[in-house]
Design a protein around this nucleic acid. Structure first.
Lengths: 112, 112
DNA sequence: CCGTATCCTTAGAGATACTG
DNA sequence: CAGTATCTCTAAGGATACGG
């Protein structure tokens, strides 16, 4: 049995699936794998995500210590997000998912 | 650009994330990785999934050709689910997620 | 045993407007 | 620029009962 923030899991896979059981977190990680990014950049480069949802997801990822947030005292404001060590270790997962998607499209979809 | 069932994606990762953007599909794959399973077995072994939801998710996976469904003309009925070739190729993804979850728990949770 | 059919409840997410 | 605050809506999922 595993416990994180008073939540119980009977398998460590359940931990991952629970954390990333939403529409956007893995997209955000994917963006950050290529280097730290500002809020605006994420908002523009991640499909159709709304500002509000992006805020919420970034906060959740920061609370879980998967990403870091660094704010600069400037006007206009500058905030930079980057992957923590444990966040960087998601690279394998995302590479595999990317590869699988490519393979799935090749056999079951169209490339235009 | 990729197209599957009249849905457009600009990245093959988006394909994977869209397919598995729900609470249960990857759990089902995880179960089936250890061999074919009957409906009841899945229903009992996958956390708190309801019968209705399991039905829906199995159907979706079958339509996407990720799992196979085989029904035996018996009374009582017997139905067996198994992974298709492209379904089996999700093993890497799930192994990585499992490994990451284990690592995350070690550094951010408790093991009881 | 393996599902369907309803009904119902909530969390996730979008749109828009506003603030430090 | 980087967020909050509302307000709204929909689809995912659960509970329960029924059917082949």
């Amino acid at each position: 049995m595993y416990q994180i923030n008073n939540k119980e899991y009977n398998c460590s896979l359940a931990v991952s699936l629970d954390i990333f059981n939403d529409k956007w977190k893995l997209y955000i990680i994917w963006q950050l794998l290529s280097g730290e990014k500002r809020f605006k950049s994420l908002n523009q480069n991640i499909g159709e995500i709304s500002q509000k949802t992006l805020c919420i997801k970034l906060k959740e990822l920061e609370e879980k210590n998967i990403i870091y947030r660094e704010a600069f005292a400037q006007v206009p404001l500058k905030v930079v997000y980057s992957l923590s060590p444990v966040g960087k270790e998601l690279k394998d997962v995302l590479d595999d998912m990317h590869r699988w998607g490519k393979h799935y499209v090749k056999t079951h979809g169209k490339i235009t």
